[in-house]
Write a protein that binds this DNA or RNA. Sequence first.
DNA 1: TCTGGGGTCCTAGGACCC
DNA 2: TCTGGGGTCCTAGGACCC
Length: 416
Amino acid sequence: MFALVDCNNFYASCERLFRPDLRNKPIAVLSNNDGCAIARSEEAKALGIPMGAPAFKIRHLKARGLITMSCNFPLYADLSNRVMQTLKDESPDVSVYSIDEAFINLNKIKDPLNFGLSLKKTVERNTGISISIGIGPTKTLSKAANRYAKKNNNKTNYVYVIDKNCTHLLNTMDTQDVWGIAQGLGKRLALCNIFTATDLALMKPYKARRIGGVGLERIVRELKGISCLSLDETPSGTKSIMVSRTFGQLQTHFEGLSQSIAMFAARVSEKARSKKREGQYVTIFLRTNKHRKQDRQYHVSLSTSLKHPSADTRDICHAALTLLKKIYKPGFNYNKAGVLLTALTPKEGRQFNLLSQPRIKSDELMDAIDKINFINGKETIRFATSGVHRKWKMKQNNLSPAYTTRWSDLPKALVK
DNA sequence: TCTGGGGTCCTAGGACCC
DNA sequence: TCTGGGGTCCTAGGACCC
């Protein structure tokens, strides 16, 4: 048996935790650049705001009490860690799946329902974050159970255990609500008269493979109750690291792009070092805004191989800027760019190259940079290629304080 | 005017190996 | 006239996840 634990309206709940005045009010948390809604409180959902709604299309709802907030990932990451730590304290087999979700292996648990109910209480007491728990014989079914628990919380109290006979639950589930199926597959399935999760569960696996490859076959088997996805307690480690941003203003000139690419490359290198990994390939991409029909469109990416795996900012920056010179074309309105480092391997057990040695004292230099920036704040020292005047900086007009990760932002309690 | 960021996995095709 | 089989690795692109 698997349990899927999912935090309810996670980002919105985090924003509320230190702002009791926001309880029972419609809140939408916006993506970077305050672009679109990526989380909504129940009250905001009730206003009819769909996931991913552009901010400018929901602005008029402020008149009806909607509060929009910029996203505050340091806060969400810290609260996520607290939730995950509580789960790990309560159960030995936890696999963190995303910032607000984790799977738990329940094979040794005799009474899954009571385990779930008590786990929910503990997490809420320890962290203040409300969670839902779905329990089932496969990961896909536990996801379905979780969805059911949330939708019927007046009956389930946010905890639901699926049993072998779960037709009532799958009957009312569209294919696109099944974990792993989105628009593309959903449309293809509809052409074959497959509309509900029950239709899927009754499919022959070989037929599923023909329509949607090995992924869909797995989904079908999992819905039948045959576990194909294991808990994966020890994931193999990060395989790729990306840093990308939509610009605050459209960029046309090489200089602005090269500054942002250099900064992304520096961030990618820093992230790799913090994970003690090194990457072999550097990819960059540029794109124009697909929503601007009046603009000529250009979406492009290009990769290169480093001489040896590296997490040295100089290596990755140099590779990224060389790539940029190759793909940059003047005359386009670029709105997004990014740098990707792939084929990551652990720094321990690094494979050296007979013909090209790593830079001398690279580790010491990078270490010094990271330490200075850790102690004195981000980008206290940085490479000059990443620019001084940052026109492409992103918008964050309603950013909450870093309540739990910055001394100056600690919440204050007034005692009268 | 204004539409996110960071991941994983799969597939197809090409280059290359013996 | 007629040119194999079985692999791996890499890249690009797409689909999907939260």
